[in-house]
Design a protein around this nucleic acid. Structure first.
Lengths: 194, 194, 194, 194
DNA sequence: GATGAATGAGAGTTCATTCAT
DNA sequence: GATGAATGAACTCTCATTCAT
């Protein structure tokens, strides 16, 4: 089933936006540049997005949706907290590592967008953190994670390490695979949690 | 002895820039806004900075200098790697936690600046990471940190956790003290390292 | 048949520029003034010209093209060097004399532009001078012009006299017709050439 | 007798202005550039000149004064119109040819200044033209110049040829001496006058 | 007289957004 | 739905001029 042509054009615009914004940053990227790469007229952009900001929002949504959806679904099925954490780490790194341009945006551009996305952006991240909190709590209940650690703190620490790996990978232009770091990350984090 | 009036005006502009940019972000902040808050004419800005970008660069320099200088000096004096790490964590969190406006800039605005600071910005961070690598290596030599972990990886993980705490503190507008997180962070990280 | 609307708008901007620049000079004329007289928005100017300078270049091009094209075409058809020279003089004076505002620009503003048009501007004039050199050489071959005179020098002298008449006409605001000077100029120049 | 220090500083500023304006044109030259080359503070300029324009006026004055003074004095002494004309031509070309930077200003920058010097500038030129008219009239009375030519027209033609030679010399960057053209110019002009 | 830091009006230019076609 | 020419507000930066020292 082919997507509706509407959906296709919208997607084309978002894809073009990823490439352009990754290259130059959000503010240096003009709507005209995105339109040109997407192969549509400038005005057409405004049939699919209310304004330039909304393109960035949508980019964020699209990637977070993928993230949470895929993550949650796969997690429910699994057993031990430790396995879940390993799996999350792999998922996180491989999802971010899949598309460098998109990673530049999530790791670099969207940080900055806090100034105009405000609560919004953090809400999404909060949802992701909640998943992590769940895993930590489960681990504590299973008796494999230390109990004197605040699960919310632990979740943030986990996120922090994965996020730094991702940022580091984005900034170093070497041609490595981000997900290769997963075992190392898991070892380190499990050490901190046990 | 008062500072030279030159230095004072330059500092006033930087101070004003911190407040304004923290509030609205670099791109939403106009040179006129900074000038107004600094109590100088628009044109005066250009007697001290070649252009708007240079204000951001200078902000970055000023805070990184403080960071590295203070950090390095104090570390040389100390003994065990574990103590050093605890100290770095405290230092990091209390330096970032000292000025929320400045923290917003270092945690949020400057991430984004990668697009125009390029190698430059990362060089400074690299210097900081080198300090962390040194501590990890020392700990391995002392036999208190596990040796099967790449010190460079460990350094990044340490940075990642501290950085996430800082970002989290900046974004949550609660009136907590960032440095209070230091013990928790230390415990977690030492767990991962040992 | 109306011109394309694109061509019309571009022409309207150039026409407006002629009037405004003739009135106040290039540097005192703002892009906003030209836009206003042309009946377009400031930004519209930049759809047709890369920058303010290019408006002046285009003015120059437009008038030189007319000059050389018309001149060359008509000259090819004719016979004796003396007749050709008379014709050039008439053409030169009547072309310049046709539009006082444009004349102000060619006689006054564009002189000055040498500083930023450099080789370019002089190339065009050189082409015109080449036509004059051709006529002088022909006259010498016909035996009606003295042969002990460098044709290149003579061409410049011819140009100098016509140019001075034009400048003088532009600056004196009297309501005379520039081309009326043609016979007098011809007599004088032919005297110098024979 | 040394000039007063006041006069010296004023002269230094004018000399600096000649070099700078010749290089870049009046509008591209800032008061600060002139001050720097003159070795004075920006503000000092305003102790000697009311504003930037006045510097250009003074440049014009200084060179025209030289021109007319020297010209008139020497002419009074002489006899035949033809000799006078030859002398004027030599004088004109050698005065202009003496200082290329100054020549750039008189031949290029000052043309353009008509827009803000208005009557003023032309008055000075008129005085010079009057001298030429006198010579032509004398020549007609002596019976060596044709009488059917308007002396005012002839004077302008003479000026036009000399002026074109000067402009041409300024623009061609070859290292020739302008006054070498004097004999050729004289021959041509006398041909047109007789 | 001399300085040069400070001023602030004003310029060229960009670009998100609109809307007639 | 799609276009892209047109808009004009808003921005950064320059520089002639002033004035306290």
């Amino acid at each position: 089933m082919a997507r509706s042509s509407t959906g296709m054009k919208r997607a084309a615009i978002l894809d073009a936006a990823v490439v352009e914004i990754a290259q130059r940053g959000y503010y240096q990227t003009t709507v005209a540049m995105i339109a040109k790469r997407a192969g549509v007229a400038d005005g057409t952009i405004y049939l699919y997005f209310a304004n330039k900001e909304e393109i960035l929002f949508s980019l964020f949504d699209r990637s977070m949706d993928r993230f949470i959806a895929q993550g949650k679904a796969e997690l429910d099925a699994m057993g031990a907290a430790e396995d879940k954490l390993r799996h999350i780490i792999e998922l996180h790194l491989s999802l971010v590592g899949r598309d460098r341009d998109l990673a530049i945006i999530t790791q670099v551009e969207l940080r900055h967008s806090i100034h105009f996305m405000d609560q919004f952006s953090r809400t999404q991240v909060a949802e992701y953190l909640a998943v992590l909190v769940g895993v930590v709590t489960q681990g504590q209940e299973e008796g494999v994670f230390r109990k004197d650690q605040d699960p919310v703190f632990a979740a943030k620490a986990i996120f922090g390490v994965m996020d730094e790996m991702a940022t580091d990978w984005v900034l170093s232009r070497r041609n490595t695979r981000l997900e290769n770091k997963a075992p190392e990350v898991a070892t380190f984090l499990l050490g901190g949690l046990r």
